[in-house]
Design a protein around this nucleic acid. Sequence first.
DNA 1: GTCTATAACGAGATAGAC
DNA 2: GTCTATCTCGTTATAGAC
Lengths: 213, 213
Amino acid sequence: MSPRLDRDTVDRILDVAEHLVQVRGYNAFSYADVSAALGIRKASLHHHFATKADLGAALVERYRRSFLAALAAIEEAPAAGERLGRYVGLYRSVLRRQRMCMCGMLAADIATLPAPMRRGVARFFTENEAWLARVLAAGRSRGELHFAGAPAAIAAFLVSALEGALLVSRGSGEPAHLDAVASLLLASIARRPPGRAVSPRSGRRPLRPRHRR
Amino acid sequence: MSPRLDRDTVDRILDVAEHLVQVRGYNAFSYADVSAALGIRKASLHHHFATKADLGAALVERYRRSFLAALAAIEEAPAAGERLGRYVGLYRSVLRRQRMCMCGMLAADIATLPAPMRRGVARFFTENEAWLARVLAAGRSRGELHFAGAPAAIAAFLVSALEGALLVSRGSGEPAHLDAVASLLLASIARRPPGRAVSPRSGRRPLRPRHRR
DNA sequence: GTCTATAACGAGATAGAC
DNA sequence: GTCTATCTCGTTATAGAC
């Protein structure tokens, strides 16, 4: 009975566990940590998630779905540039909250994860890249974006750069790292301003902050 | 006495531990793992590294120095393009050996590391980027490379993209990921062919595989 | 659904013989 | 320098009362 309360507890457990994984990694958080944060006993946690592997699998599944939902929300923006800006914003927000992308963190832990978690992590990245590739392809065909090569390759590139920027920002203790990378990424793909004549050096300037005409 | 044998044992311990960290992370390897791999008892390991924190600090220090040495070796190549190619090759080699960059891995674990390790990891990234920035600046001033913006920003960008490519390659189970990213990176910085006139669309093409011309 | 209590194990670390 | 033996603690997990 009382499926409502049950649901809530499960969600609260997942919230805390997700945060812990994003900050400490899968192997450096325990039921005791979740227990302390929630004011609930370890044994009670096992009632909701029998094993840590079960908890981990639920964690990945929820994160993946919620990320996909965020991507779907971004598609409501009509302009490709806006979509990319918001996509990058997802990563900025992760860093602002002093976390790592949960699946990026789990990618580091991959060798130690149970198989269902590994599959979920792989799926997160392939779906993430597939979505990006669609946005890129649509944006280019509408003349809103400018890049050469396969959208899938650029998508892989964007995901790598953003995940890496989160990682290096943590490692170097320099949060501005991500902003520098994000600016370069967006500028290198944004449409060149159409009014601008082709000056000899107009070639490539991956640096300027976006918007601007 | 017998400092020779001592040295060797220390090195073998560090070799095994480094591998374990690159594959499993700092929190998912133990003295028991090293012990088993080396055929030496746990207590003997403690003779060489009193605590895991000591072992970890030595690990970071050695990795950082050895990476710097690899960078110094790369500088023997006179051409900037060649230097960058070899730099990217360092990352390719890590992936080929089915590992993660050790400091990239430790960047994920950063919240759980003892302070000396954290400092070593941060230093690894700043030195790494500083070296790259120098290579980029020199290459551009000699007309061998082509990019806009501060070399330091591009350096941060390259490191992020490569670390991220290693990470995502692991997470997605798709090793080709890194190759795609590496090609895009090198192409976006390589010198534009001088013979080529400035065509209306020559603007920006971060995409095409280098050489050609 | 939550609790207390406890089992079973592996981790990092130490003492002291050889 | 390496060993055996042992300690202490934290971890995942279970049993069974409330």
